[in-house]
Design a protein around this nucleic acid. Structure first.
Lengths: 242, 242
DNA sequence: CGCTAGGTTGAGGTACGTCAAGCTAAGTGG
DNA sequence: CCACTTAGCTTGACGTACCTCAACCTAGCG
């Protein structure tokens, strides 16, 4: 059970020091884990969760259903993401969280989390920082959707995802496992499947990326970041007192 | 000075009870206010604010600049919005906040806010709730941008803005003051000025809205909400223990 | 051997964007 | 009081990035 929160610790420690006490307190929570299959709902829209959950392994998405039956993905979550800190505050879920691949998820009761945050103000701020970073990523997506076109948007998405995966040790040397379908990618960046396919092909034929059977490689990181206009400040990567 | 935080109190009390102690503690912070002219920067991208700020009056936007020089607005803020709670956690601003109209803004030092939150865990959760609501709004914008077309998106934006204004007493009977230009609206909903103009005209000629010289009226609220597919759960309107 | 999930390709339509012009009302200076 | 300017709004013409529909292809699998 001790390794369950190791990627969460990486996420936090990337942004600030954590005391031994704080680490122990986090570890001391009564985590319970479970597995989810692709397309399975981890948290349902309209539900009132009594637990928060942490994504331990896999990829998940925040999902809003439109009245025409199509789904919109508003965020991608990876190992180490405290997916449902939101439910702790919002009470009633305005959206659902779905597993996009096989997922391992760890749950912790809201009550324990509230106590922890009252006892450790700094830890409380660190968890709020996670909310703030999520919001910063969402802002990037908003301007990307309104001002960037498909190729730049996908390029930006790749740069962002690589950076995040790197923090939790799931990516290095511009390579990472990315077992999502093109249809899911299309949903994430807000374009049609057909157009996503053509755009990915163009990125491939330009020699910028490789993506075969779940293995993703960024071949020209600098050029990809350039066309994406990618500047990682919004990910709050420096470690400093928070 | 006592009325400075009155709309913040409305925003919070709409979501949960606040004790007299909590209210007194909020009032007791050393707020300092200042005015900003339209287009003026309230918080600059790249800066490291030592104060958080609260929008007391006017409209402001979260602004990200693209490398082609155009600006993207990722959020609209109104009276009662704790605009820069983000800066408290993020340290370095990844975006700027600009006044879209004449704005009155109240500032409070980060240090005081941190102390307040350590002393009042419930208040701390309420402020995090504000962050979570902002994030929920951003998610709606993301799916709106990727799946709704211009008219529905503007309709959704209007429904949302009306609801938020109502909470702080700046709207009632489907009418509110909305002194923004069509160009700003276009930036907010992510379309061109020309298309925004045509879409607004269509909403007008359909008899759904009226918008003259800064006065906005929703003439057919139900129909507007229907084409917008608007469901306000994401605004966390119920008052309940948080 | 057929079935299925995922990927690829083509053809045609449309909701947008861009460019460019003109219009109106409010303000400014003489 | 009149010219002039300016910000905001409006309109038309035209281009394009994207969507939809509809195949077809491939690899893995029972």
């Amino acid at each position: 059970m001790s390794n369950v929160i190791s990627s969460l610790l990486s996420v936090l420690r990337r942004r600030d020091k954590l005391s031994d006490e704080e680490e122990a307190a986090l570890r001391g929570l009564s985590w319970t884990t479970s597995q989810f299959a692709p397309e399975e709902e981890i948290i349902a829209e309209g539900s009132r969760p009594s637990q928060s959950c942490l994504l331990v392994d896999g990829f998940a998405g925040r999902c809003l259903w439109m009245n025409d039956g199509s789904r919109g993905l508003a965020a991608l979550h990876i190992s180490g993401d405290f997916i449902d800190l939101h439910g702790l505050y919002l009470k009633t879920m305005d959206h659902s969280v779905v597993a996009l691949t096989e997922c391992a998820v760890a749950f912790v009761p809201h009550g324990e989390l509230r106590e922890l945050m009252a006892r450790f103000p700094h830890l409380s701020r660190m968890l709020s920082l996670l909310l703030a970073i999520d919001a910063a990523i969402e802002r990037q997506w908003i301007v990307g959707l309104s001002r960037r076109q498909a190729e730049d948007r996908i390029a930006h998405f790749i740069c962002e995802t690589y950076q995040r995966l790197q923090i939790v040790g799931c990516a290095s040397h511009h390579r990472f496992s990315f077992p999502l379908t093109q249809a899911t990618l299309a949903d994430l960046v807000g374009i049609s499947l057909v157009h996503a396919n053509r755009t990915v092909q163009h990125l491939r034929s330009s020699g910028l990326i490789e993506w075969n059977g779940g293995d993703f490689s960024i071949l020209k990181p600098d050029e990809l970041a350039r066309i994406a206009d990618f500047d990682p400040v919004y990910l709050s990567l420096p470690s400093e007192p928070r």
